[in-house]
């Protein structure tokens, strides 16, 4: 391939990548800051995971252990 062509392709690639990643970045920011209003996740509540981290504290979002696991854990 000619050097000229390579340079041209590079320039197109560069322009595309810049726009593409800028869109992803701002899209993510937009998602984070509007999610709560739209009834989605309230990200700030996750901060409490560090503050209330005792084994007996209630998880912020609980995972239900599988039935048999539950059995095993309570047998201990």
């Amino acid at each position: 391939m000619e050097m000229e062509t390579i340079r041209e392709l590079q320039a197109y690639g560069y322009a595309f990548a810049s726009v593409f990643f800028a869109l992803i970045l701002y899209g993510y920011v937009y998602h984070l800051y509007t999610s709560k209003k739209k009834g989605g996740t309230d990200y700030e509540k996750y901060s409490n995971m560090a503050l209330n981290d005792g084994l007996d504290d209630t998880p912020i979002e609980k995972i239900e252990p599988l039935q048999e696991e539950k059995q095993m854990r309570s047998n201990k």
Binding site: Y46, I60, E61, K62, P65
Partner: peptide, 11 residues
């Protein structure tokens, strides 16, 4: 795999 807290904290 055996966690009780569903979401992974940032750390």
């Amino acid at each position: 795999g055996i966690r009780r807290e569903k979401t992974l904290y940032i750390s």
